[in-house]
Design a binder for these strands. Sequence first.
RNA 1: GCGCCUAUCGUCUAUCGGUUAGGACACAAGGUUUUCAUCCUUGGAAGCGGGGUUCGACUCCCCGUAGGCGCGCCA
Length: 438
Amino acid sequence: MSVRVRFAPSPTGNVHIGNIRAAIFNWLFARHHNGRFLLRVEDTDRERSTSEAIQTLLDCMAWLDLNFDEEPVYQSQYTARHLQVAQQLLDQGLAYRDNKGGAGECIIFKMPKEGTLEYTDLVKGRIRKKAEDTQDFVIVRSDGAPVFHLANVVDDVDMKITHIIRGDDHVENTFKHIQLFRALGVEPPAYAHLPMIVNNQGKPYSKRDGAAFVGEFKEQGFLPHTLFNFLALLGWAPGDDRELLTRDEMTALFTLDRCKSSAARFDLKKLAWMNGEYIRQLPLDTFAAELRNRLAADAIDISHVAPDRFNVIAALLQPRTKYYAEVPGNCRYFFTEDYPMNEAAVEKRLKPEGTADLLDAVEKLLVAMPDFCHETLHAAVEQLALSRGATLGAFVHPIRVAVSGITEGPGLFELLEVLGRDTTCGRLKRVATMLRAK
RNA sequence: GCGCCUAUCGUCUAUCGGUUAGGACACAAGGUUUUCAUCCUUGGAAGCGGGGUUCGACUCCCCGUAGGCGCGCCA
């Protein structure tokens, strides 16, 4: 029998990382077994399941390349079928009508009253519960709407799902679901429950703990493969020491018995590290294209920058980028005079004594340079420093701050070369003047 | 309250009865470098507690403890 799994989210407008991780595990499992990965949209809550919410879900799936193998199933279209099954259960005496709580008549499914219920979870192992600790439960509300448990199980039957891989929070529901499968005369699928993703306090990771939705990570500039790889490693390990894995590697290595059953904390620092690793592997063009988008979004005009020059800048930035959102703030000085080189910055980052003279000397040197390439600049400034009995380092810092406003970034001379003579000298003069005015 | 589940460095994890308990992130120190990042070297850092079982337990069992989940006419 070939594997058929499904990801069955209810569209709420946001896709939580815990949720998408379940999708990733399902996808990995399906691909590993050459099975089918299906999407079922549980859109029975008409209030929240707007077309925008559904589109957001689809976009997230596409962004992470969680490609599914059949047309998505929309649960709301099968209400009649769910109700028909409820009637069938009623006819068989496996369910009954009741006016529970006086809210009107609903349909309730009978759970066993004695014995022990148990199943083997592919992640958690054997799980058992006494029948007396379970209760009958509503499958059709008094307003006629099928309840989650019914719809979920009936759809899984109809979609011929073989393995249900979902969040830990469904462990208890599984007893209900298995009984429902049996009542329908269908052998229950295999179950695997994934541990939750939690915050520093051990509580379920939520919006309040930081970025919690796929869209937010995309926004911040994490690559889809980073999120995929990182989430796959939360609760699963390949068994060797590898952590940076391709999809094919993960697919080949993925098995449910290598999944952990305890909750995992979300570590943003490690995610950032991983993203840096993957950003460095990107072709320059890809990085440059995304950089353009980010700068545009930040209203930094780059229309005056020639493509070749832009690529040089991108090449300087790429090796030191962890995620895209941090980039615009780190490279303004390449594109505009509106970078943080004001009185406050000067005061904070430059020593008043001697710096103005130093910058003047450098400026005078650079104006007269025969060419403006970084090797030549390096040699010339170094010589100037030595001739004054100083180290190159003593010159580099003030120059860097004067032309960029910040204390970190690409190699200084590569930076000056890209900036060009006019801009460099103009900025040196300007800052020297500011220092003297104090 | 009742039920179910879980428990290895700060974090993610390896270990499936015998290891100096390994790796990664983070952190610290050093090296390379003009800063940052990268890179290299080094370091600190873990089996929740108590009982068993066993020649031998992180590993198996029990009891605690702590945490999570569930106990809706939500999904």
